[in-house]
Simulated assay, not measured.
Amino acid sequence: MQFDNGVTASTITGSEWIKSSASVGQGNCVELAKLPNGAVAVRNSRYPDGPALVYTREEMTAFLIGAKSDEFDHLMTS
Rank of each mutant, 00 (worst) to 15 (best):
M1V: 04
M1C: 09
Q2F: 13
Q2C: 05
Q2I: 12
F3L: 06
D4R: 15
D4S: 14
N5S: 10
N5V: 05
G6E: 07
G6C: 13
V7N: 12
T8G: 12
A9L: 06
A9N: 11
S10C: 13
T11H: 07
I12L: 00
I12E: 00
I12V: 03
I12M: 01
T13F: 09
T13G: 09
G14P: 03
G14C: 05
S15M: 10
E16Y: 07
E16M: 12
E16H: 15
W17P: 00
I18N: 11
I18S: 14
I18V: 15
K19R: 15
K19F: 10
K19V: 07
K19W: 06
S20V: 03
S20L: 10
S20Y: 10
S20R: 08
S21C: 07
A22R: 15
A22H: 15
S23L: 06
S23W: 06
S23A: 13
V24G: 12
G25N: 05
Q26A: 10
G27D: 08
G27V: 03
G27L: 03
N28R: 15
N28A: 11
C29I: 12
C29N: 08
C29V: 10
V30N: 01
E31K: 14
L32S: 04
A33M: 02
A33F: 05
A33P: 02
A33S: 06
K34A: 12
K34G: 12
L35T: 03
P36I: 08
P36G: 06
P36W: 06
G38P: 07
A39I: 07
V40T: 10
V40E: 02
A41V: 00
A41M: 08
R43F: 01
R43T: 11
S45Q: 05
R46H: 11
R46Y: 11
R46L: 09
Y47G: 07
Y47Q: 15
Y47N: 12
P48I: 00
P48V: 01
D49K: 11
G50V: 04
G50N: 03
P51T: 04
P51Q: 11
A52Q: 02
A52F: 00
A52E: 13
L53V: 01
V54C: 03
V54Q: 01
Y55R: 07
Y55M: 07
Y55K: 12
T56W: 07
T56I: 02
E58P: 04
E58D: 14
E59P: 03
E59T: 04
E59I: 03
M60R: 02
M60T: 04
A62G: 10
L64F: 10
L64P: 04
L64N: 02
I65A: 15
I65R: 12
I65T: 14
G66C: 08
G66K: 11
G66F: 09
A67P: 03
S69M: 08
E71F: 10
F72Q: 00
F72P: 00
F72I: 08
D73I: 01
D73M: 13
H74R: 02
H74Y: 14
M76N: 09
M76P: 04
M76G: 02
M76C: 11
T77V: 09
T77G: 06
S78V: 06
S78L: 13
